[in-house]
């Protein structure tokens, strides 16, 4: 994870488009400027960034489902529960499952665990829209390659 750049996902472990499921790895770094403020002397991953990690895992799943032709944007977070503090150097597993694939929007469930222990979970709504420009699409495709979401050739 590079928290400052909102790069929350390190590697896609598995994705099943037929079942509408994804599992990804995210390793919390030892150091980050985020920890200088959250909190001084007691570094914790902010809950909003855990929600962002879940949103990105769901977003990756939707991107692949849309064959990378449309961008996903988080629109709603429901029933978010942040159960446990997350410290630096924690290995996270982020999972997501599509509940409903609508026309222009997707409802999903997402969760994070560490060592099999529940960290957080939420229900998410994403809108899907055409890519605003080629720069954005190029960046998204590059992250998809780096994380193993997109395997070409």
């Amino acid at each position: 994870m590079r928290l400052e750049y909102f790069e929350m996902i390190d590697r896609v472990e598995s994705i099943d488009l037929d079942a509408g499921k994804i599992s990804v790895h995210a390793y919390v770094p030892k150091d980050s400027t985020v920890f200088e403020g959250h909190f001084p002397g007691y570094p914790l991953v902010p809950g909003v960034l855990l929600i962002e990690a879940m949103a990105q895992a769901a977003g990756y799943l939707i991107l692949a489902n849309e064959k990378f032709e449309r961008m996903t944007f988080l629109a709603a977070v429901k029933e978010a529960k942040l159960r446990t503090f997350v410290l630096p150097e924690t290995a996270l597993i982020v999972t997501s499952e599509i509940e409903h694939d609508g026309a222009g929007y997707t409802m999903s469930k997402a969760a994070i665990t560490a060592d099999g222990k529940k960290i957080c979970n939420a229900k998410l709504t994403h809108r899907t829209l055409p890519f605003e420009n080629d720069d954005l699409k190029g960046h998204v495709l590059e992250r998809a390659r780096v994380t193993g979401l997109l395997n070409e050739g």
Partner: peptide, 25 residues
């Protein structure tokens, strides 16, 4: 528009259709 996504979700489920929210918008 955000509430309408929830409405569309319930309509989709109830009638087994896909309301083309994005196309309409």
């Amino acid at each position: 528009s955000l509430d309408f996504l929830d409405v569309a979700f319930s309509i989709d489920k109830e009638f087994d259709i896909k309301v083309p929210v994005e196309d309409w918008m």
